[in-house]
Design a protein around this nucleic acid. Structure first.
Lengths: 125, 125
DNA sequence: CCAAAACCTGACGTTGACGTCAGAGGCAAG
DNA sequence: CTTGCCTCTGACGTCAACGTCAGGTTTTGG
């Protein structure tokens, strides 16, 4: 899935990306500012994105939800853009994975505690 | 588990609570300011906590990790402190539970995507 | 052709959970 | 008594991911 420079992919403006991914226009500009997105520009200066940018933004949202920062995502991005690999980055990936796994486990624990309380207060009002 | 006013439980100072729960002293004071903790005071004004405060703080950390705010936790606290129940609070509990469940699912998705990338870059360096 | 909608660049504001610093007491050990 | 660690109350600082406002240009639909 390395970038295929097909002759003329349909490009979309920032509003469509935002709506498509369910975020604000401001957020998309912010991602670009953080180096997560790159946009072509129309002659008048408007940003033009490839359509897969929408999926990309959705992916960012997932990573944010997983507790990654923009900086961290930017550090990991080369993984998604090229086939290139280096040991340090693989270690980073695994570290993040473990962090998220731990977080999932914690959340599951919290969920269980909430369920406890719910069943108690429901059966014993 | 309603509060048992046992004659003289061993009380601990803020530093012990913090170390015990793995948070900063500042954090503990913050929790008190948000109405999550109540402390007795020694004659000289130092905060004195019951030992179960440590578990309580750990629980707060879980809830924070689950995305609850201090305010939200404070609203739900009566559940843990009394046997009293009202329908609105039960609804809140269930709402939070569902939110967390959704979050867990999202995280699991993110985790799967990371795993994909990891196996790809590992088997195909 | 013209108004509404969309986009642009700054740049300051917001929110939550603390960090940090200042200045002043309090407490057990030697 | 004094040294060293703990605690106190303000109060300002931080960081991330945007929100929001100002003032101006561009694109689109009727």
């Amino acid at each position: 899935m390395t970038v295929t420079e097909s002759a003329s992919e349909r490009l979309v403006r920032i509003g469509e990306v935002a709506r498509g991914a369910g975020v604000s226009v401001r957020a998309v500009r912010y991602y670009e500012q953080q180096g997560l997105l790159v946009a072509e520009r129309s002659p008048s200066g408007q940003r033009l994105y490839r359509q897969d940018t929408i999926a990309r933004v959705r992916f960012f949202q997932q990573m944010y939800a997983a507790g990654l920062t923009s900086r961290r995502i930017a550090e990991l991005l080369p993984r998604w853009n090229s086939g290139h690999t280096d040991a340090e980055q693989r270690a980073m990936l695994r570290a993040e994975r473990d962090r998220i796994q731990a977080k999932v486990d914690d959340l599951q624990t919290a969920l269980d505690r909430l369920d406890e309380v719910i069943t108690i207060t429901d059966t014993h009002p």
